[in-house]
Design a protein around this nucleic acid. Structure first.
Length: 97
DNA sequence: AGGGTGACCCGCT
DNA sequence: CAGCGGGCCACCC
């Protein structure tokens, strides 16, 4: 199973509403490990549960970032939720601060 | 205990 | 403005 740290990360990601996205840094900060953005990616990459909408987590510079099933799929899912994406960049208006 | 890993980030060139 | 280098962190052998 996962330890409390990973659980916290999943919980935070699950709280991201449809049509919004959060950054890896944002999730790391809310999880209490502000400099562990990279680790957040590790945890989400490992995740396979459809209950965790990890496609809603993007890079701080606005780029969509990686995805287990491919960046294309991540973009598709976000667009389906109404998120505006130019190239591989999400509109800043969707990013939670 | 220690080195390897990665869906990241920042500063410098 | 694009690349590169180094830092970063928790986890996994």
């Amino acid at each position: 199973m996962y330890d409390s740290r990973a659980q916290r990360i999943f919980h935070i990601v699950r709280s991201i509403p449809r049509g919004k996205v959060a950054t890896y840094t944002y999730v790391a900060r809310k999880a209490g490990v502000p400099k562990a953005a990279r680790y957040v990616g590790n945890v989400l990459g490992n995740n396979r549960s459809s209950r965790v909408p990890c496609h809603r987590v993007v890079r701080k510079d606005g780029h969509v970032g990686g995805f287990r099933d491919g960046t294309r799929e991540k973009v598709r899912r976000l667009r389906r939720e109404g998120v505006v994406i130019r190239g591989n960049c999400v509109g800043a208006e969707h990013i939670l601060q």
